[in-house]
Simulated scan of single mutants.
Amino acid sequence: MPDRALLAMLEGAQSDNTAAIASVDSMRHSLAEYDRKLNSYRAALEAGADPQLIATWTQQVQREREVAAAQIAAMEASTDARPALSRKEIHELVKSFGGLVKILRAADSTDKLEVYRQLGLKMTYNHKTRVVVAEVQPPPPVCTVVVSGGDLNTVSRPPA
């Protein structure tokens, strides 16, 4: 069981991500505004407005909406856009590592290396204080977005 000082240290080591979360929230409001515009354009079209004019407006808003959605996805994939863990969440996470530590101790060194690589493990030793600082930064999930010729519909594919 981790002690209170360790939990406090882990909680304090998290970056302040309130600005990133606010930015994601702002972008979500933009998505809602784009959706509102598209719905109003549809209503105008159904009411007899010029289809060519509505099509031009719709294409522009759809492009802007796609950009905003991609920005949100990128922000959410970054560690700065994730909410900070509570002390209770950190405690549960640390407790769950107990079984993982046992498994890693018994694992082949090649398997350990792969686990550490995927975690983005970086260890820094301070010879004066004789302390090792371990940091993990798993790479964010990445996907490829493909847009065909004039079609604004996108297809997301997982990385190869």
Rank of each mutant, 00 (worst) to 15 (best):
Met1Asp: 10
Asp3Cys: 04
Arg4Gly: 02
Ala5Thr: 11
Ala5Gly: 02
Leu6Gln: 06
Ala8Cys: 00
Leu10Tyr: 10
Leu10Pro: 08
Glu11Trp: 09
Glu11Gly: 01
Gly12Gln: 13
Gly12Val: 08
Gln14Ile: 06
Asp16Lys: 05
Thr18Pro: 04
Ala19His: 10
Ala19Lys: 10
Ala19Val: 11
Ala19Met: 08
Ala19Phe: 12
Ala19Asp: 14
Ala20Thr: 05
Ala20Phe: 10
Ala22Trp: 09
Ala22Met: 04
Val24Asn: 05
Asp25Gly: 09
Asp25Leu: 07
Ser26Asn: 13
Arg28Gln: 12
Arg28Val: 10
Ser30Thr: 08
Leu31Asn: 14
Ala32Gly: 03
Ala32Ser: 15
Ala32Gln: 08
Tyr34Asn: 11
Arg36Pro: 07
Tyr41Asp: 03
Arg42Trp: 05
Ala43Met: 10
Ala44Asn: 07
Ala44Tyr: 01
Leu45Arg: 13
Gly48Asn: 01
Gly48Lys: 05
Gly48Gln: 01
Ala49Gln: 05
Ala49Arg: 01
Ala49Glu: 13
Pro51Tyr: 02
Gln52Tyr: 02
Gln52Leu: 12
Leu53Pro: 00
Thr56Leu: 12
Val61Trp: 06
Val61Gln: 06
Gln62Ile: 14
Arg63Ile: 08
Glu64Asp: 14
Arg65Gln: 02
Glu66His: 09
Glu66Tyr: 04
Glu66Met: 07
Ala68Trp: 01
Gln71Val: 00
Ala73Met: 02
Ala73Phe: 07
Ala77Glu: 09
Ser78Pro: 11
Ser78Thr: 06
Ser78Met: 13
Thr79Tyr: 10
Thr79Pro: 05
Asp80Cys: 03
Ala81Cys: 04
Ala81Lys: 02
Arg82Ala: 15
Leu85Arg: 09
Ser86Asp: 14
Arg87Gly: 10
Lys88Cys: 02
Glu89Arg: 07
Glu89Met: 08
Ile90Leu: 15
His91Pro: 02
His91Gln: 15
His91Asp: 14
His91Arg: 15
His91Cys: 05
Glu92Gly: 05
Val94Met: 14
Phe97Tyr: 15
Phe97Cys: 08
Phe97Ile: 05
Gly98Trp: 00
Gly98Leu: 00
Gly99Gln: 11
Leu100Gly: 00
Val101Ser: 12
Val101Gly: 03
Leu104Tyr: 03
Arg105Lys: 13
Arg105Ala: 13
Ala106Tyr: 02
Thr110Ile: 12
Thr110Trp: 01
Asp111Gly: 09
Lys112Leu: 08
Val115Cys: 02
Gln118Met: 06
Gln118Trp: 06
Gln118Ala: 07
Gln118Glu: 13
Leu119Asn: 00
Leu119Ile: 00
Gly120Ile: 07
Gly120Arg: 05
Lys122Ala: 12
Tyr125Trp: 12
Tyr125Glu: 07
Tyr125Thr: 02
Tyr125Ala: 06
Asn126Leu: 00
Asn126Pro: 02
Lys128Leu: 15
Val133Ser: 09
Glu135Cys: 00
Glu135Asp: 06
Val136Ser: 06
Pro138Met: 03
Pro139Ala: 14
Pro141Lys: 07
Val142Lys: 11
Val142Arg: 11
Val142Cys: 04
Cys143Leu: 03
Cys143His: 04
Thr144Leu: 09
Val145Ser: 06
Val145Glu: 04
Val146Arg: 11
Gly149Cys: 05
Gly150Arg: 11
Asp151Gly: 03
Leu152Asn: 08
Thr154Tyr: 03
Thr154Gly: 01
Val155Glu: 13
Pro159Ser: 13
Ala160Pro: 13
